[in-house]
């Protein structure tokens, strides 16, 4: 079955560790590349990519952590910064592997986000939850 995220990867921003794009369903997607070890530069790049894609609008964000291998403390701290303020209204963290489960739970437990954050193992359920925070498309 074709995943929703596979159908809308137009105008994506590619970086060493992430692929980020805006879906036609009003949800912003960012996917960690398979076996990526996320460092501070990757985290900063990701924030910039989301800002660039969002423009002056606020979107809910789906973070696909399934492929993540590890993440440095500096990168975690960057994502935890409240003043980072990328244009996000909610975050769904998609997890599957044991490593992604650990990292996802770290974000929930240690980093108190300014916006609602929830963990999902199912992409459809994650999108359905995120849609509650999506603004109508222009």
């Amino acid at each position: 079955m074709t995943k929703i995220s596979d159908t809308i990867k137009n105008n994506s921003v590619e970086s060493r560790a992430f692929t980020t794009w805006l879906g036609d369903n009003g949800i912003c997607y960012t996917e960690v590349k398979l076996n990526a070890s996320v460092e501070l530069a990757d985290a900063c790049g990701n924030t910039e990519a989301i800002k660039k894609i969002s423009g002056d609008r606020i979107y809910p964000l789906l973070v696909n952590l399934k492929g993540i291998n590890s993440i440095t403390k500096e990168a975690r701290d960057h994502f935890a910064m409240r003043e980072r303020t990328p244009a996000i209204s909610a975050i769904a963290l998609l997890i599957k592997s044991p490593s992604s489960r650990i990292i996802g739970n770290f974000f929930l437990g240690l980093n108190k986000s300014a916006v609602p954050v929830q963990l999902f193992t199912n992409e459809e359920k994650a999108i359905s939850w995120l849609k509650r925070f999506a603004l109508p498309l222009k």
Binding site: N35, N69, S70, I71, K73, R76, S97, P98, S99, R101, I102, I103, F106, L110
Partner: peptide, 25 residues
């Protein structure tokens, strides 16, 4: 050591490493 196999042992190693970093901070 995180082997990169992304199995349960890697998750444990990753988790314990991250906890250590947070405790140190």
């Amino acid at each position: 050591n995180v082997s990169g196999k992304r199995d349960d042992f890697d998750a444990l190693a990753l988790g314990i490493n991250m906890l250590g970093e947070e405790l140190q901070a």
